[in-house]
Design a protein around this nucleic acid. Structure first.
Lengths: 91, 91
DNA sequence: TTAACATTTAACCTAATTGTTAAATGTAGT
DNA sequence: ACTACATTTAACAATTAGGTTAAATGTTAA
């Protein structure tokens, strides 16, 4: 997977927040949506960007589609990077 | 400096290539421009995005403005990150 | 098979990004 | 002061990104 896609995917605050949520464990799309003010359609597209960037995986279970982090390491690196730069911990 | 700005700045391939160039040492704006196909005006704006993200610093010397990396560490991290993900080394 | 629910996809709108050219700014040399 | 050069800023066009609502898809259960 290209670096370009990964960085582009990470450049949006909602997508980073989604990764942050998934750090705790997998979640159904609907549960993810409920953490944000935007519509499900909007989150669904964010999820597809993250998926194309290979940062998350999805797996359908019945009528739910669960998402899980594909590279939890990445979040760790970013947190470290943020601290290195003396930035706010996330966002 | 906010993570948002850093990641946004890093999400453009030209800007990443500029950082890559600056890894070797400081360069005048014009020299940077000559490495790309786009106009000086366009590169100038890319430079200002990188500067706002605090990834580079500038210092005027006579009629030249030299740019230098402000966080060479960052490039290292990204290269490592790219390898971790099994991606192309840069871009 | 119909109804209800979860999620995605399509169509559309607006705002942001990136590029261009032309004008403005800053500096050096004559 | 004038000219030449290096770089940025302004104004504009084209593209991309992110949001919305409405329609489509997939799944379960009656």
């Amino acid at each position: 997977m290209a670096l370009q896609q990964t960085l582009r995917a990470l450049s949006d605050p909602i997508r980073r927040e989604i990764l942050h949520l998934l750090k705790k464990g997998r979640m159904a799309a609907g549960d993810i949506v409920s953490h944000f003010e935007v519509t499900g359609a909007s989150i669904s597209r964010h999820l597809s960007v993250l998926k194309e960037a290979d940062l998350i995986r999805d797996c359908r279970e019945g009528k739910y589609i669960y998402y899980e982090l594909n590279a939890s390491v990445l979040e760790e690196i970013l947190l470290w990077l943020a601290e290195l730069k003396g930035a706010e911990t996330h966002d």
